[in-house]
Simulated assay, not measured.
Amino acid sequence: MRILVVDDSSFMRNMLRAVLEKAGHHVIGEASNGQEAISQYRDLNPELVILDITMPILSGLESLKEILNYNAHAKVLMCSAMGQKAIIEESIRYGAKGFITKPFKEALILDEVAKMC
């Protein structure tokens, strides 16, 4: 699967890349803020976006809305260290296909990605 990874933390992007590539997925791009995420989505047309909620410039939720306005069929997994029920529900209501809570567990990441295939 061709995946765009979006997180303001380079450590988290690298960790996600390692997990995904080890499982045979292709990380085709990375972004460190919501504005870059939208631009990269349009340029790269990934099959899946893993999108952090708390980011500079545009939040993950704002970016999610823009990506879905551009492509209503986009597959987006949201992630956050918060893991609060209200944030998960809001993400799903806006159109996210799933939610991953930090700190990441490799098996959970891969389970959520597998649901998108």
Rank of each mutant, 00 (worst) to 15 (best):
M1K: 10
M1A: 05
M1Q: 09
R2Y: 05
R2L: 00
R2I: 03
I3Q: 04
L4S: 07
L4E: 01
L4H: 08
V5Q: 09
V5G: 01
V5W: 05
V5S: 08
V6G: 00
V6C: 01
V6R: 02
V6A: 05
D7P: 11
D8H: 15
D8N: 12
D8K: 12
S9G: 06
S9L: 08
S9M: 02
S9V: 11
S10G: 07
S10R: 14
S10C: 00
S10E: 12
F11C: 00
F11H: 13
M12T: 14
M12K: 04
R13C: 03
R13K: 11
R13D: 03
R13W: 02
N14M: 13
M15Y: 08
M15I: 11
M15D: 08
L16P: 14
L16M: 15
R17C: 09
R17S: 10
R17I: 02
R17G: 10
R17D: 04
A18V: 11
A18K: 15
A18Q: 14
A18N: 13
V19C: 00
V19D: 00
L20M: 10
L20D: 03
E21G: 04
E21F: 03
E21C: 09
E21D: 12
E21N: 12
E21P: 12
K22E: 14
K22D: 13
K22W: 04
K22F: 05
K22V: 05
K22M: 04
A23E: 15
A23M: 09
A23K: 11
A23W: 11
G24R: 05
G24D: 09
H25R: 08
H25D: 06
H25G: 10
H25V: 08
H26A: 13
H26G: 07
H26Y: 06
H26E: 15
V27R: 09
V27L: 02
V27Q: 09
V27D: 05
I28K: 05
I28S: 03
G29E: 00
G29P: 12
E30F: 00
A31P: 03
A31C: 06
A31I: 03
A31Y: 01
S32I: 12
S32T: 15
N33L: 04
N33R: 01
N33E: 02
N33Y: 03
N33G: 00
G34Y: 05
G34I: 08
Q35E: 15
Q35L: 13
Q35G: 07
Q35K: 15
E36K: 13
E36V: 10
E36F: 07
A37C: 07
I38G: 02
I38H: 10
I38A: 08
I38F: 09
S39D: 13
S39F: 11
Y41F: 15
Y41P: 03
Y41K: 13
Y41S: 06
Y41D: 02
R42G: 10
L44D: 00
L44Y: 07
L44S: 06
N45H: 15
P46H: 05
